[in-house]
Simulated scan of single mutants.
Amino acid sequence: MSFGTINILQNNLAEVIVDEGVVMDEISVDEYHDFLLNNLEAPMGLLINKKNSYSYTFEAQKSIVHLDAIKSMAVVTQTSGAVMSTKTLINVNGNIYRNIKLFQERENALSWLYKELSTQ
């Protein structure tokens, strides 16, 4: 991917790692959504691993979570800056995406996603 790595963990679950310093724009979001729709089964879960620092254009912020095939998103944040940027992203979208949860540990995030995806 031009913006980072998407690791498929199972047929409806992927881990997304955006590269350090990337600015996600509408083109990156389209590439991201196309990959998810072409490589995962819906309903899908995403583990967003925010181990790197990156940003979004305003247009990308508004469209990044607008994909009906996504059932649940777990965001792994290890810094206060990552927590703040994730909460801002949720607020920009008017909290329309309700099934998103923040975690400090990747293992806890995965456990939550497996549970979410098993209750369809």
Rank of each mutant, 00 (worst) to 15 (best):
M1L: 05
F3A: 10
T5C: 04
T5H: 10
T5K: 13
I6Y: 07
N7C: 10
N7K: 15
N7I: 10
I8W: 13
L9S: 06
Q10S: 15
N12C: 09
L13Q: 07
L13R: 08
A14D: 05
A14T: 04
A14G: 09
E15G: 08
V16L: 14
I17L: 11
I17W: 06
I17F: 10
V18A: 03
E20A: 03
E20I: 02
G21D: 02
V22I: 15
V23K: 13
V23P: 04
D25E: 07
D25W: 06
E26H: 14
V29C: 06
V29A: 10
V29D: 02
Y32S: 06
Y32H: 14
F35L: 01
L36Q: 02
L36K: 06
L36G: 04
L37P: 00
N38L: 08
N38H: 11
N38D: 12
N39R: 10
E41K: 14
P43A: 07
M44F: 04
M44H: 01
M44V: 04
G45P: 00
L47W: 00
I48R: 10
K50R: 15
K51Q: 10
S53N: 09
Y54D: 00
Y54S: 02
S55Y: 08
S55R: 12
Y56H: 11
T57K: 02
T57H: 00
F58L: 11
F58Y: 12
E59H: 15
Q61K: 15
S63E: 14
S63D: 11
I64G: 00
H66L: 09
D68G: 11
K71P: 04
A74I: 06
V75L: 04
V75W: 08
T77F: 03
S80R: 14
S80K: 15
V83Y: 15
V83G: 06
S85K: 11
T86N: 11
T88M: 15
L89F: 03
I90E: 09
N91Q: 14
V92G: 02
V92A: 09
N93A: 09
N93Y: 02
N95G: 13
N95D: 12
N95E: 12
Y97E: 11
N99K: 13
N99H: 07
I100W: 03
F103M: 03
Q104R: 14
E105T: 03
E105F: 08
E107F: 07
A109M: 00
A109Q: 00
S111H: 07
S111N: 14
W112E: 02
Y114R: 13
Y114A: 03
K115S: 05
L117E: 00
L117T: 00
L117M: 02
S118D: 05
Q120C: 06
Q120Y: 03
